[in-house]
Design a protein around this nucleic acid. Structure first.
Lengths: 240, 240
DNA sequence: AGCAGTCGTGAACGCCGTTTACTATGCCTA
DNA sequence: TAGGCATAGTAAACGGCGTTCACGACTGCT
């Protein structure tokens, strides 16, 4: 049991200012992309001067990193909520809901998606860091998908590429991640997770970044069809 | 036959300066990302002053757009060269070579990849424009892949999702693109092209942007395995 | 020879991140 | 309750940025 320290007045004010800064930063992210976030504009927005923000963040990069961490959590919560909304469904149905929720959030928040999943912002080492460690927001995000896939694996199982193929080629490079995130799972499941995440990422990133505009007026059918195809590959072993 | 106009001295100088500007811009793109491209730094590099560049480009955004067009062409030529290097192989073999070449170029030139295929740069409307029109560099880039896939289709054929599935759902949104780029091809082939391009893009973008670092120390096996899986799906209809 | 278009400069405006020195103010402790 | 310290803010300054403008020099054509 953690001792509850009643927040002092100063601490409350500090927390409020901190989130006010991040709110303003997000507003600028939305309207002009990551590079439109400026300390001076935030300060102006808040009726302050720019150097004051250095009492709250080491520099602009750190602020953007903190914002990225928040956004990772927001996206994850969105995906988790979608999964829980069909909690009584199969793992397969929940994965569909999660994928759709991820796409919906990304399309609704293109600037945020760009910050989290796009081009690393120059000097934006903080965003990278927010995604690197196993305990960090980015990894926790992937874990939601992996957990559901693992459940499907344990309950029903599904066909995967031959184990020896994956062991031999991917094994050495994948082993550290497996140990950290799914020590109980065989490498094939980790592989299917990566393949699925890559497919989902590719579809959503292409759409959000506008790289499909020249080909498709509405990406929904392509997304749904590809999602279906991927999950059909995850047929229970009996059906194979 | 086009009349050959001998370039005047002024025209030669202008062309030289123009490419010198773009060379400097690319150097900065490589070292610090798209936002590191600055008119003042370029001018300093060339022993000029910044306003002089406005004689060659309307503004910074236009410069970046022109650079993007060049890079699209460079990447396309790289992919085409890889295809021609195995010109006597099957279309399938050529597609493997092209995909590998695309990955190799992207990994070797992450900043350039980021500019072309990543987050739209804020204010970087020019990059978008360079990719939009059917005759533009970005579309020509995709056309290389589509052409090879079409050849495989006409020569051998391959299984696709059922035509009526694609017609009904994707048809209306895909028809404009088909008319512009492959009026002789059925919608299923266009669909397979998009699916393959999405897979390739997802794999390469994840790797280049560092979004696979937390999972994989070397992406090559995953890339090769996924490439294989995709092409195995393109089995000739007899084998199905 | 003269004229127009081209190419470049220098100064200026208003942005930006960041550092420094300095001032209030809230809060804890003696 | 008075003193002192950490906290939170300010103004000024530095160097960098894109962009505009007025102005020269030079090229090339008539």
């Amino acid at each position: 049991m953690t001792t509850v320290i009643p927040p002092t007045r100063r601490e409350r004010l500090r927390a409020a200012t901190l989130s006010e800064i991040k709110d303003a930063a997000r507003r600028m992210l939305v309207t002009g992309g990551a590079t439109a976030i400026s300390l001076r504009a935030i300060a102006r927005d808040m009726g302050m001067t720019a150097p004051a923000i250095y009492r709250y963040f080491d520099n602009l990069d750190a602020l953007v990193g903190a914002l990225a961490t928040d956004l990772f959590d927001e996206a994850r919560q969105e995906v988790e909520a979608a999964s829980e909304a069909v909690a009584d469904g199969s793992a397969r149905e929940r994965m569909i809901a999660m994928a759709r929720a991820f796409r919906a959030w990304s399309v609704a928040h293109p600037a945020e998606f760009g910050l989290l999943f796009g081009n690393p912002v120059p000097g934006g080492q903080s965003v990278q860091r927010a995604c690197a460690g196993a305990t960090d927001a980015g990894a926790r995000f992937g874990a939601v998908f992996l957990a559901t896939l693992a459940e499907e694996w344990e309950r029903e199982g599904f066909v995967t590429p031959p184990a020896e193929l994956i062991e031999g080629r991917l094994g050495p490079h994948l082993e550290p991640y497996r140990e950290a995130h799914g020590p109980d799972l065989p490498l094939e499941v980790i592989y299917v997770f990566l393949a699925g995440w890559t497919l989902l990422y590719g579809l959503v990133a292409m759409e959000v970044f506008g790289h499909l505009q020249w080909a498709l007026s509405d990406v929904t059918p392509l997304f749904e069809l590809e999602l279906e195809r991927f999950l059909n590959l995850l047929a229970p072993p009996a059906a194979a």
